[in-house]
């Protein structure tokens, strides 16, 4: 079947989609967006978390056909998403000018220096919340959405909001640090 879906603001079309394919498979294998990860494909790990019409969902549990005509935001579009939020005068965003203050300090070839990042992406780098990084895209989408709803989360709020995202490397401590950091860096009273 044919599928039309808007991903990260861009209309996309995929042909010959098998009816049993998940949105995750379509994103990864057909639309060239492998950022959303395939760790469990049973809704247990959150690595494939995307926003579907604004709502965080496990893209592995969305049948491709169910995404027809809908809007999807993936980790690849997170920086743009954050920028639009701040431009829209959204309640809690951080402008990218501000975000740039925390650009990665690394100076190595692989840093992707100069890449625009959302505040939560930057905070994950700065706090050491990334090890193997496989859980990171899903966590970023989930954490970004939580901060959008709840700019001043308690530790228990953060843990609850991220309880659907498994990480096997970090023991979550640095992830907690990263989300706290991203929350603290939000301009107050916007």
């Amino acid at each position: 079947m044919r599928l039309n879906v808007t991903v990260n603001g861009r209309p996309q079309e995929a042909d010959d989609v098998w009816e049993g394919e998940s949105l995750l498979y379509v994103l990864r294998e057909r639309l060239g967006l492998p950022g959303s990860k395939n760790a469990c494909e049973q809704g247990e790990c959150g690595s494939c978390t995307v926003r579907l019409d604004g709502v965080p969902v496990c893209s592995c549990l969305v049948a491709a056909g169910q995404a027809e005509g809908r809007e999807v935001v993936t980790v690849e579009g997170l920086a743009d998403h954050a920028e639009q939020r701040s431009h829209a005068g959204g309640a809690h965003g951080t402008s990218l000018d501000e975000a740039r203050q925390w650009q990665a300090r690394g100076t190595d070839s692989q840093t992707g220096e100069g890449t625009r990042l959302s505040p939560v992406q930057q905070a994950f780098i700065d706090a050491g919340a990334v090890q193997c990084g496989f859980c990171t895209p899903g966590l970023l989408v989930a954490a970004d959405e939580m901060l959008e709803r709840n700019p001043n989360p308690s530790d228990a709020d953060i843990r609850e909001a991220l309880s659907g995202n498994l990480c096997r490397c970090t023991g979550y401590e640095k992830i907690m640090d990263a989300v706290r950091l991203a929350a603290a860096r939000q301009p107050e009273g916007v």
């Binding site: 049993g20 494909e41 809704g43 496990c58 592995c60 549990l61 049948a63 056909g65």
Partner: peptide, 26 residues
């Protein structure tokens, strides 16, 4: 019928089920 997909898609992803028709209720 598939709505949230949280049961049906697991079964499809893990090859436990191959329904003839999948009906989206969304």
């Amino acid at each position: 019928p598939i709505a949230g997909g949280t049961d049906v898609m697991v079964e499809i992803n893990f090859d436990h089920r191959r329904p003839e028709y999948l009906m989206d209720l969304n």
